[in-house]
Design a protein around this nucleic acid. Structure first.
Lengths: 357, 357
DNA sequence: TTGTAAGCGTTATCAC
DNA sequence: GTGATAACGCTTACAA
């Protein structure tokens, strides 16, 4: 077993100094043609690669991005990671992943762990518990330490940083409007509790669309799912709730659900109680995942373009990191004026499938 | 913006030496009660945290695991990551993710990138292109450098390392046997090309089960999908192929598919051509993902327990990493005898749902 | 009880 | 053209 070779060892073998080796390998013209040749050949032979950790320590930057998300077994989030990874890789960065598992404490622990030198900046989406607690001090603390953050999807005004979001409001608005266009008269909403900002915004989009079209919002047609039920693993509970809801509102002829699972479950229940989709009832979901594509009938959805979100977030973060560098080079000071942050909105798009006419 | 504080700064502020600070913070009893108190208070006030990178350099270990997988937008792989992250975190490790995107070259690049000091060991699943090329030198090179690897799911005999696999053969065998028990007489197989080892093993399980029950395998009943078609994004092609297959073999009354997508697509097609599931035709898939759970009818599958795979892989890797440490401590040499590797088999389990009787 | 110094692997500055 | 030295932040013999 041959451990990785270091500059020191090369220097010793070739009987030159470490700095000569270092310079030769970076093609410095301070070093003679001859020695450079010799050293490079030797290095190649022994497959020399500079040690990342040493470089990180020296340069005070790690060239790695910390991703902090609530959950990874999740189509949207993993799509975002793929986007981040893609541009990170292209721009010479690595990606280190932490999962908060929707927990406030785990979010903080993970954050502090990575902030101690392991990463140059964060891309994150806030955990539900944090949103509920409305305690964002750890984000601000991190930013104050000089570690930039880019938030995506679940973002919050209380933290001053770059953000990438989808237009949840407009996405929902368009979805509901499209149901109206398709002649739905009694459009139901299946949503989450309000503290999840995206749920809230989508609800608002729903309400606004109705209003815009002079339709009265009926609170009976709004079903708020208590997701503390861990619905993902209690499908029966979810379906029972929806069944109850549909039965007590037989006039419903359109459903807008704020996520894929709710939409698919609604279709399932609707079929069970004998409704034809899309003839008796039309359904649109939010988030374009595997479920939508493969459900039967396949589900019309509002696509969030997760990969694009990830790509934009990564570009935003890396741009900022590299701008910092430039600034330090130029002014020998990074503590100058307060930076202004960007809020980037990714357009949603309705993907028409079989669940609507 | 206050950058993170270092030992040096604390030392200067408190007018003591760096080593005194270091010792005080680690509660060394070399240092007087008094100074320890003072230093710890100060450190707490300024929220001192040791710099990970410096520690990594000093200790020559990073306490981070490199995960290298073909794809992240994938239920199985993300489940495995979740498992890895869980135990890694518990045992004080971080997780850095690289995606090969099924490409040989990207796998190598990623591997070399991370192997230069960024990680202590790898957990990986081999890309399709690598399997096709059968070129595994980069894995062996990494291991020879003293960086341990744990492979999972897509593994290969040519590389000597710890492995965690599911019993693809037995899983398939059991699935087919269960179809036989449920009175299927003409069981079809929908599988991948042979170079994907898991596809091959599952195919063997299918054949063996038939044989064991004195049923003759009919090559007409085996459909091999050419996944260079990028079937995931060409559902129509896939469904057309399956439709063709089912129509030309109307006697099929049971289907075993080596993945979820094939199974769900088969159900869709079957329904379209008027077959009742499970009455006319029963279906079992492999890999228990979201699709299976939410398909209608919901799909009976062979569950792979991805999270458990991840957990075992992480434990295996960390055990080995920490065993190395102990060895070095004991013998001042790690180049002793050749280690023996473990191949851990995770049992599969059939999850009965509506697609079988 | 405290401090000095070496070392982890690099690069950059400066001297020879 | 080459090499010594310092520095990145930390730990740990070893000296004082």
């Amino acid at each position: 077993m041959k451990r990785k070779i270091t500059l020191k060892q090369i220097a010793k073998e070739l009987d030159v100094s470490i700095s000569t080796v270092s310079k030769a390998l970076s093609n410095s013209k301070e070093i003679s043609e001859d020695t450079t040749q010799k050293i490079q050949a030797f290095a190649k032979l022994y497959n020399y690669r500079p040690n990342n950790i040493a470089l990180s320590l020296k340069n005070r930057k790690t060239k790695t991005i910390g991703i902090l998300i609530p959950e990874i077994v999740h189509h949207f989030f993993s799509t975002v990671i793929r986007g981040i990874e893609r541009v990170a890789n292209r721009r010479g960065y690595n990606v280190i992943v932490g999962l908060s598992n929707e927990s406030f404490t785990k979010e903080i622990i993970n954050m502090e762990l990575l902030a101690n030198g392991s990463i140059d900046g964060f891309i994150l989406s806030i955990s539900k518990e944090t949103l509920l607690k409305q305690d964002y001090h750890h984000f601000n603390a991190t930013i104050n330490q000089g570690i930039p953050i880019v938030m995506f999807d679940r973002v919050v005004n209380e933290v001053d940083c770059d953000k990438v979001i989808v237009d949840d409001f407009k996405g929902a608005f368009n979805a509901v409007e499209s149901l109206i266009d398709k002649n739905c008269k009694n459009i139901a909403l299946i949503t989450t509790m309000d503290y999840v900002s995206v749920g809230k915004l989508r609800t608002q989009g729903y309400l606004e669309a109705l209003e815009e079209h002079k339709m009265v919002a009926d609170s009976n047609l709004i079903l708020k799912i208590d997701d503390s039920l861990d619905v993902e693993n209690n499908l029966d509970v979810l379906e029972a709730e929806i069944a109850q809801f549909l039965k007590s509102n037989p006039n419903i002829d359109g459903i807008f659900a704020v996520n894929e699972l709710y939409a698919v479950s609604a279709m399932k229940v609707a079929k069970k109680i004998g409704l034809q989709i899309p003839d008796d009832i039309q359904v649109i979901g939010f988030t374009d995942g595997v479920l939508s594509k493969h459900a039967s009938p396949s589900l019309t959805t509002v696509s969030q373009h997760g990969q694009k979100i990830g790509e934009q977030a990564a570009n935003l973060l890396i741009d900022r990191l590299e701008a910092e560098d430039a600034e330090i080079d130029q002014y020998f000071s990074s503590s100058s004026r307060k930076p202004s942050y960007i809020k980037m909105v990714i357009e949603t798009e309705i993907i028409e499938r079989e669940s609507t006419k």
